[in-house]
Design a protein around this nucleic acid. Sequence first.
DNA 1: ATGGTTTTTACTGCGTC
DNA 2: GACGCGGTAAAAACCAT
Length: 322
Amino acid sequence: MTSREQPVRRHSETQRTKENSGTETETCPECSGDIVGTDTEERTCTECGLVIDGQPIDTGPEWRAFNAAERDSKARTGAPMTNTLHDKGLSTTIGFDTTDVYGKAFDSRKRRQLHRLRRWNRRAQTEHARDRNLLQALGEIDRMASALGLPEPVRETASVIYRRALSADLLRGRSIEGMASAALYAAARHERVSRSIDEVTTVSRVDALEIKRAYRYIDRELGLGTPPAHPSEYVGRFASELDCAEETERLAREFIETVVEEGVHSGKSPVGIAASALYAASQVRDRQLTQAAISETADVSEVTIRLRYREIFSAVGIGNDR
DNA sequence: ATGGTTTTTACTGCGTC
DNA sequence: GACGCGGTAAAAACCAT
């Protein structure tokens, strides 16, 4: 202990700085030191030891229980509210007691009735949950699709995929967001207007890893058999984003055709090939595009572009005469 | 988990404007 | 000196097993 006497006084008036700014910092009225402690315990000043509002709130129960059964019988509250359930956890559940409030056993007629009630109650709830789930997911798909400029048929396909996943019970423990993103990603590839995972990520509320995981899961479980993305699916967008010459884009597409026919592309990322083909084409024609610029818009490293475009050149039979 | 392949990161050096 | 490019080694990511 320090030799300094710690003053213990009650003081209910506190100065609050930064009134409405998220993190609330309190300052001691005596020495303007920092106040530590939460509502449930004593709050004290770190500098002078002044106790602020020293009447902690006990959030626990006011009764005591010595075993689980006793706790059950004394507790008057249930599970906390949650937003992860469609009804915030506030739905009715029909218990499994076989006795009425007086402890008298139900007759068989009553028991059958209860059984029916339980069943319909459960059905109504899960139907409801599914509807809400679907509604939210379809909304998300729509939003992301517009953001990515994907046409109507892709949204259709995405909804179908999502519905299939839902009815196949693939949603357990997975986020609606992630699943919706994955469904959209898969749909775009099926409709041959692929977007990269990275692109989907930019408009999704979940990260790339989750989308990837969800995608692989539904692709496998639903037997989607998603075809590999063709490099030329990316060329158009990259070209317009870089606003390069029409002719360069056309040449890039030619290169890609050749490369694909030769099979040089297998195993390599289609995005990288598309980017490199553009670079290669630009080198042949006007040399307007830099590796850095393409790397930026296509999200492919410059190294990869270098590696690929050399392969492209040798595949299309362009020597080192640039 | 593992191992093979591809991609990225980080860095260095060269020629040009 | 900044820029565009090439090359390399090592790390990281990816993918099938």
